[in-house]
Design a protein around this nucleic acid. Sequence first.
DNA 1: ATATGTGAAAAGTTTCACAGCC
DNA 2: GGCTGTGAAACTTTTCACATAT
Lengths: 231, 231
Amino acid sequence: MPFEPTDSDDEEAGRPSPASNPSPNVPVATVTRLALYLRELQQLQRSGQQRIQSSAIAKRLGLNDSLVRRDLSCFGQFGQRGVGYSIVGLTKAIQAILGTDRSWNVILIGSGNLGRALSGYRGFNQQGFRLVGVFDSDPSKIGTKLGTITVSPLEELESTVEREKVELAILAVPASSAAIVAQRLEDAGVTGILNFAPVTVRSPGSGLTVVDVDLAVELQRLAFAVVNSRG
Amino acid sequence: MPFEPTDSDDEEAGRPSPASNPSPNVPVATVTRLALYLRELQQLQRSGQQRIQSSAIAKRLGLNDSLVRRDLSCFGQFGQRGVGYSIVGLTKAIQAILGTDRSWNVILIGSGNLGRALSGYRGFNQQGFRLVGVFDSDPSKIGTKLGTITVSPLEELESTVEREKVELAILAVPASSAAIVAQRLEDAGVTGILNFAPVTVRSPGSGLTVVDVDLAVELQRLAFAVVNSRG
DNA sequence: ATATGTGAAAAGTTTCACAGCC
DNA sequence: GGCTGTGAAACTTTTCACATAT
């Protein structure tokens, strides 16, 4: 049961949605917050707690409690009036919404500094993302190990995507090659890219979804906020 | 230096008009987009181009051209009607807005996988961020080198912040220690934190500014977008 | 008594459309 | 002809406030 985010933005440049997409009503920022709710819920679950209220979730994240309820209500009714939410139940519900109630096969392109760090990032595995391949175009990198995974030549990208039914790719290559690799990923059948390259990698009318993370942009956001927070 | 947006009549001589206030009329998303405009402008500058139009910037980023002009107009008038924007001039203007027209001393806490990758990230230096220290609490890490910088014990954090006049910190420590380290950073006088730890590092009423980057959250956003784009 | 879910209001952001200047 | 800058409209998101359920 697909939900469609409305097009606008919060903490990132607006992504264009060129074509028509069904059912609006889900703010993009809501999706980010759901992932944060999930993070808090999983932490609470570890602490053994059973129930939680929207106000408590909101407080932990510095949000308005009404916003938490509104975000959830985009997808259904998960709470009990006068009581709150079951932590286990809400955890599962949000995972189903986000699509992480199953595992995703992911490949990583680029075994430089950032690629190495990302390949070992525990948070990915914990949310059901399985790294099934790492690729690099640099011959000197081929055959080296990143944790348990051996770096493969870029030539094997397409066959791996097909064999492992890879849907998501993490792009951690230099800006200069990002566009070409992204095109190759799309042609190979990958439907989502998490792009760390500081360039626009967005095909106009395709079915490819891109989420951008530009670390320098984040630091610039921080600089602006610091400069503009001193009265 | 902060900017005061529109509202009042504040056009004297076509110069950007700075002021002494936080930013009331500046959408949060505008700041992120400004950093993206800057990225594109710097790329254009390298290609030798001299002028650019809002429509061309917009096209490169998949945005509406009116939005580009509106974003810029929050801070002044930087273009010429009928002509466009000087690439060099607009680059400098955006850097002044973001606060990256000078250099910032930054420290990094955490020399794990992610910390190592971040310490070598070229994009930071390119935008005027100078890494002046790396800290870790793990004794086995102390004294090891990350590029040209030697990892120092956490005990030296405060003295380094003072000596180097450090304003920004990049937090790349495990979730379990993030809150304590963040508090220490604030007490030491750091005013901005780029937080990679998957926990809320919130300071209630303090002057501390935090920008969060949770890599697992980004991948979940991607999963949601992929699941909800088919149909 | 307490907390959800949601219509309606408020606040915020983007797009339209065009005056003004090149 | 061209393009910027911006008032006003359109649209989106958040908050308020309260009916509804336990």
